[in-house]
Write a protein that binds this DNA or RNA. Structure first.
Lengths: 141, 141
DNA sequence: CGGAGATGGTTTGTATTACCAACGACCTCC
DNA sequence: GGAGGTCGTTGGTAATACAAACCATCTCCG
């Protein structure tokens, strides 16, 4: 059962760290009039162009929640909607240049806050951590 | 600059994974009528007995937000308030037995969902990941 | 002592986030 | 060329979040 314990301890650390990062991101967002959810939206849109329903699925939110979320961000010129040419029902969502810029800037701020932690790790440890983390980001989960 | 890149890539992976875990926790919470924020509250209270302001500081929330949050959870018997005997202004917050039980159960659910990912790592990799992660959880940040 | 100022938490008011149910537009497939 | 399904929005309600104003309590200095 040592394997069980090792999973438990790791899970605990991951969740704890997740909350910690969440706190940092919440503060950064607040400083820029963005909620954590909007930050998550932007994080997803960085390298994707999903339809509304896909976006909702990624975030675990209802599609009706997405409407308002997209509305407000669109009104601020940070992202945009576009009817999918292949299917008239579908609406694709994507970052505007201003949205990309803002996202980049916020990631920069996050970096400035979180990086000092990571800097405490040796370069080879960082590589190791990254390598260990990659399988956790696989699409299947 | 390879060191910079390594930090960037790692930070990106961490944030991405954080969002992934956040999604999982949001779903688990929703299945139990709890918001992500409440989950975070319970996560903190697992091993602490903070005053309202401390709790707000941990979460990056305003103290006025905490009042309602605590109200609702208290009404459900999951946590409780108690006047601090040393300072009449201060209100300490802590989990009730029912709250501890629920928190335990939810962590069990999170484990059931996230553990399969972690199981894909070899035991020694898990130890390694945990060891690498520990310094990130130090109090200072 | 005794009050002035600071701190801790709640209350009030408003915007955002989130769900569900119902709807209108569009697609699919027979 | 419908019937039924899918996609996104709208309307209604509750929870979440902030800021400002408030009362109670504590601190500390005269």
């Amino acid at each position: 059962m040592t394997s069980e314990d090792s999973v438990d301890a790791l899970l605990d650390a991951l969740v704890r760290y997740t909350f910690q990062v969440t706190g940092v991101l919440t503060r950064i967002g607040a400083a820029n009039d963005l909620s954590l959810t909007q930050l998550r939206v932007f994080g997803i849109l960085r390298d994707r162009r999903p339809r509304v329903t896909e976006l909702a699925a990624y975030l675990g939110l209802d599609k009706s929640t997405m409407s308002g979320l997209i509305d407000r961000a669109e009104r601020r010129g940070l992202l945009a909607r576009e009817k999918n040419p292949n299917d008239g029902r579908v609406v694709d969502v994507f970052l505007t240049p201003a949205g990309h810029e803002l996202t980049q800037r916020l990631y920069g701020e996050a970096r400035a806050i979180l990086a000092p932690d990571l800097d405490r790790l040796r370069p080879d440890q960082r590589e190791q951590l990254l390598a260990l983390m990659r399988p956790l980001l696989e699409p299947d989960s």
